[in-house]
Write a protein that binds this DNA or RNA. Structure first.
Lengths: 183, 183
DNA sequence: TAGCTCATGTAACTAGTTACATGATTTG
DNA sequence: CAAATCATGTAACTAGTTACATGAGCTA
């Protein structure tokens, strides 16, 4: 699972409350992931019990008391471990979290993971294109159910193409950035 | 939920067993949706109890007995209702099911639903582009965390662009097909 | 004064995953 | 002889959604 890790990335950038995390999720990582406050509170509790994060109870007057969460060493280690761990089943949102969190782990490992996914999606894209050519050689003449089937396949192809282009852009940018860092 | 409706579409094309549906899901709708056999068996049971589909127990020798499911009138009605019903929260997979099933409902209603989603994604795309220009006017100079943030946004933009292009293609093709049908 | 923001949570539910179980037939 | 295919399911779990609850302060 990666909601834990998305929260670790967000809290690594800045400590904050469950409420704040919910707001942050609506932006940024939220482009790929919508998480409700109920879900976030539940996961924060679990993470605290696991010792990944520490709580600071802050009393306020006028407004409700709050719990400010901060990432501890075990949390930082766990995030590093997860960032480097290959995950063949990862979807776009897991990759987005890994990109977003690349600074908190080994950038080369994140790069390798993205390259792996680029290859997976390139293969899938080829497979879909092959089906397209084989089963729909004359798309202009399709109608009814056959047309609908073709259009769903087109969606699959476009989605794969989109991921592929994105991964290529990310790899180019991260490689350039890593080289700059070494020089 | 739409797994029910995805199954209704698949069974409308051809009656079949839970096992077969699992295989079919790996192709076609499965480009957007992976469903395990456990999940499909559970939903089939529920759908049968609701009277949407009927079972035919077929005894076989040599291999295990099977249950062949067929869509009944209540199931057909439910599918029609769902295809026409606007759903603001629908994701790509729900839309894919609606496209795939367009022949089993009112094609004009499906067209209108896709047009609505095209608009939603166009708006979101614009919003992301606006953030891009405002927060990252010089992307070539970014590095570290700011670069990672930018790259996630780029993924969001590409995803929206991909959906948009797909919806436009689908609308063009379905409109042409509808007109052909009327002439 | 109605609705939004801040801030937390519980409870009940639906959706989806992982692991386990059975057993004959066909293919490599 | 091992592995895949056909065919069904149960059980236990994790992930995510929906509904409900509280309550002060600030804004239109």
């Amino acid at each position: 699972m990666a909601l834990e890790h998305a929260i670790l990335v967000s809290l690594s950038e800045r400590s904050g409350t469950g409420y704040e995390l919910t707001r942050r999720f609506e932006k940024s990582i939220g482009l790929f992931w919508q998480a409700s406050h109920q879900q976030i509170y539940r996961v924060l509790k679990r993470m605290e019990e696991a010792g990944w994060i520490a709580v600071d109870h802050v009393e306020q007057d006028g407004r409700p008391d709050k719990k400010v969460y901060t990432v501890g060493d075990p949390g930082r280690d766990e995030l590093k471990r997860w960032l480097a761990e290959p995950n063949a089943n990862a979807g776009a949102r897991e990759i987005a979290v890994k990109i977003r969190g690349a600074s908190f782990g080994d950038p080369e490992a994140v790069l390798a993971e993205i390259a792996r996914h680029r290859d997976v999606h390139a293969e899938r894209h080829d497979a879909y294109r092959h089906i397209e050519k084989r089963d729909f050689p004359a798309p202009g003449e399709l109608s009814g159910s056959a047309l609908h089937q073709y259009l769903v396949l087109r969606g699959g192809i476009r989605t794969e193409q989109g991921h592929l282009d994105w991964f290529e852009e990310v790899l180019r940018a991260l490689r350039t950035d890593n080289e700059k860092g070494r020089s």
